[in-house]
Each structure stands twice: as structure tokens, then as C-alpha cells.
């Protein structure tokens, strides 16, 4: 594996091949973070590509004080917040009118009397989880995704989002409480 610092320097000089190597190194990391944040593949792809476009533009400002992965995480969060602010990403909603991955049809709560197959129950759980995440505010969702799925320490999340660690804890607590309300029907299963 080539030295990352050298790759960054070459990319900063405008070498597209070096930038490509960096993209290929981090595309999965950024994409899956974007997927956690957006909840659907198309938005995740768009967001992750926007992140690399921004990274390309701002690469000369990258001084190497933080890890490149942290820098990319931060850009991803910025892009996500921007996108949500500007156009209210079409995320999963009970009121969506088109079925599909991005706009699932109205969700129904599981019928306790019914005995659905395991796969149906699993699909339903996945939809409910996505819906519960969708109901979080962008900041709550960001903090939750970064701590729970990306496993970043609270302190690092605070630095990344430029908010106090206490605020991170408060947002995360609120997020978990809201998820708890949304997913209460599944608690008996765990």
C-alpha cells in the first residue's frame, strides 16, 4: 500500500491518479457513513460523491493535522447537514406515497395475533428501524450514527461536529429515547 501522505501531496498537486487512489481507499467508508445518514442507496451515493468532490476542491487546505478519514467524515457530516437543510432529503416516512426502498409504503405495526414468517418479520423490523431513524432530527441522527454504527468516541464526535461533549451526550440520549418510543413493540424480543 502506498504511503498515504505521499498520495495526498500528489493529489494536492493536481495528480488525478493519486486522488483516484485515495477515493478508492475511502469510498466504502464514506459511502456506508452516508448510507447510515441518508437511509437509502441513491441518496448515499449522491452524498458520498459530493463528499469526494468537496474533498478534491478543498484538498489543498488539508494540512495533515487530522487523519484523512476524520477529515472525510467531517466533510460527510457537513454535506449531510447542508443537504438536509436545503432540500429536506426524501427520507423514509409513514406518509410517503410511493412504495420502494426510498419511499416505502405506509408502514403497519405488527399484528400480535398474526404469525408472520421470519423473513416478513425481519423486513418489518428493518422498515421500522429505518423509520425510527428517519424521525430523528439531523443532529440527533448524526450523533447516533457516529456513536452507534461508526463507533466513534463521544469526544471525537464533539470535535467533528464542533459541539461540546455535553451536547453530544444530550443529543445522543434524546436520540435513544426517541428510538425507544418508536421501537417499543420490539423490546420484548431482545
Amino acid at each position: 500500500m502506498k504511503d498515504e501522505k505521499e498520495l495526498i501531496e500528489r493529489a494536492q498537486r493536481g495528480e488525478i491518479g493519486a486522488f483516484r487512489e485515495l477515493v478508492e481507499r475511502y469510498q466504502k467508508t464514506v459511502y456506508f457513513l452516508a448510507l447510515d445518514l441518508c437511509g437509502c442507496r441513491q441518496d448515499a451515493e449522491d452524498l458520498s460523491q459530493e463528499v469526494f468532490l468537496k474533498a478534491y476542491r478543498f484538498l489543498p487546505n488539508f494540512r495533515g493535522e487530522a487523519r484523512l478519514s476524520s477529515w472525510l467524515y467531517r466533510i460527510t457530516m457537513n454535506c449531510f447537514m447542508d443537504t438536509r437543510r436545503k432540500k429536506q432529503l426524501p427520507t423514509l416516512s409513514l406518509h410517503s406515497d410511493a412504495p420502494g426502498e426510498n419511499h416505502p409504503a405506509e408502514l403497519s405495526l405488527p399484528d400480535p395475533a398474526a404469525d408472520p414468517s421470519a423473513s416478513t418479520r425481519s423486513d418489518e423490523l428493518q422498515r421500522h428501524i429505518r423509520r425510527a431513524l428517519d424521525r430523528l432530527s439531523p443532529r440527533e441522527r448524526s450523533v447516533f450514527v457516529l456513536r452507534h454504527y461508526q463507533e466513534l468516541p463521544l469526544k471525537e464526535i464533539g470535535e467533528m461536529l464542533e459541539i461540546a461533549e455535553g451536547t453530544v451526550k444530550a443529543l445522543l440520549f434524546r436520540a435513544i429515547k426517541r428510538l425507544q418510543e418508536e421501537l417499543a413493540i420490539y423490546r420484548a424480543e431482545v
Partner: peptide, 9 residues
């Protein structure tokens, strides 16, 4: 790259 300024916000 190299001719832009500022940071992502």
C-alpha cells in the same frame, strides 16, 4: 486544487 480557499462549512 491549490487555487481554492476556505474550508467546508
Amino acid at each position: 486544487p491549490g487555487r481554492t480557499s476556505g474550508k467546508p462549512s
